[in-house]
């Protein structure tokens, strides 16, 4: 015999307001996709990550400074670094800076090993290494994979983020 569901369970079928607004079927079509892709490419071509990342880099520098301060409480700055790096990871992937994407990925993988602040600011050097590498990539407008040197930088940071855990 079937068991009755535990607790309450209500299914609500709402009127489809969006369908009413669009006034008919919305379909996938190649021309619309091409227009969206063209708009995406055009918007991306106008964005210079070296410029748009300036505010983010100021935030990262301030957060690292707070982490390194005597008796610092690390949770706040680490949360800021995580948020800013997450944003830069997406920007790097979207705007032609895979090195930025990789450095930010490494940074956040490291921070995700514990709740913000849990690892303590003894790790400020590891965080600073990521921030400094990212600043160098942005300052030199290092687009693309940046060859062997770029790979070495990323490999070094990945090594830090995978092994320097408590």
């Amino acid at each position: 015999m079937a068991q009755p569901p535990k607790g309450t369970y209500e299914v609500i079928h709402q009127p489809n307001k969006l369908k009413d607004l669009v006034g008919g079927p919305a379909r996938m079509d190649e021309r619309l996709i091409a227009k969206a892709e063209a708009a995406l490419a055009d918007a991306v071509s106008k964005i210079d990550l070296a410029e748009t990342a300036k505010d983010s880099i100021v935030k990262l520098d301030e957060a690292v400074e707070r982490l390194q301060a005597e008796g610092a409480e690390p949770a706040g700055p680490e949360r800021t670094i995580y948020t800013v790096m997450h944003d830069l990871r997406s920007q790097g992937a979207s705007f032609g800076y895979p090195m930025v994407e990789k450095i930010a990925t490494s940074m956040n993988r490291y921070l995700e090993l514990g709740e913000p602040g849990q690892r303590g600011h003894n790790d400020a050097d590891a965080i600073k290494a990521h921030v400094d590498a990212l600043k160098a990539v942005v300052a030199t407008k290092m687009k693309g994979e940046a060859g062997a040197i770029g790979q070495q930088i990323v490999a070094g940071l990945y090594k830090i983020s995978r092994t320097k855990s408590k």
Binding site: I12, H13, A26, K35, A36, L40, A93
Partner: peptide, 27 residues
């Protein structure tokens, strides 16, 4: 992310054409 035109339009079509019913449970 990163965004694509296909991804965006696919989701626009989904919310217009295939809306999910809503469910209310205890949690």
């Amino acid at each position: 992310k990163p965004l694509t035109g296909v991804g965006l339009i696919q989701r626009l079509v989904a919310v217009v054409e295939y809306p999910r019913p809503f469910v209310r449970t205890d949690d």
